[in-house]
Amino acid sequence: MLVIALLVVGLVFFTGGGVGILRFPDFFTRLHPAGKLDTLGSLLMMLAVAIYNLEHFSWEALLTSLKIMLIVLFIFLSSPTATHSIVDAGIRAGMVPWRKETPEEKAE
């Protein structure tokens, strides 16, 4: 039951990431849902899988679950770095972030 709840909540966060990538106006704002809703979504879904994997307890299952949590740790370390790297490339390519003051001319 807990597994299904965690899976569904993780899928909701992934949906937010996917829709946010489509809806936001420029790529600086698109990075916000893309880089981080996905991170939390993968944390929840991996947690669900790790708990489900421990249903019939054995040492190999425990090892596999620990490996899954290791992937989560790696994602939590690497995802902000990748996001920062993309932002840095955009700033240095001379892109100007989308501002609120002139929504009409920028949005068209």
């Binding site: 992934f14 996905d38 994602i75 995802s79």
Partner: peptide, 18 residues
């Protein structure tokens, strides 16, 4: 832009892991 494509590819990758 190219960086938009990069954002999309990154999102696809993080979904593929799951």
């Amino acid at each position: 832009t190219v960086l938009d494509r990069l954002v999309g590819v990154n999102a696809i990758g993080s979904k593929t892991v799951v």
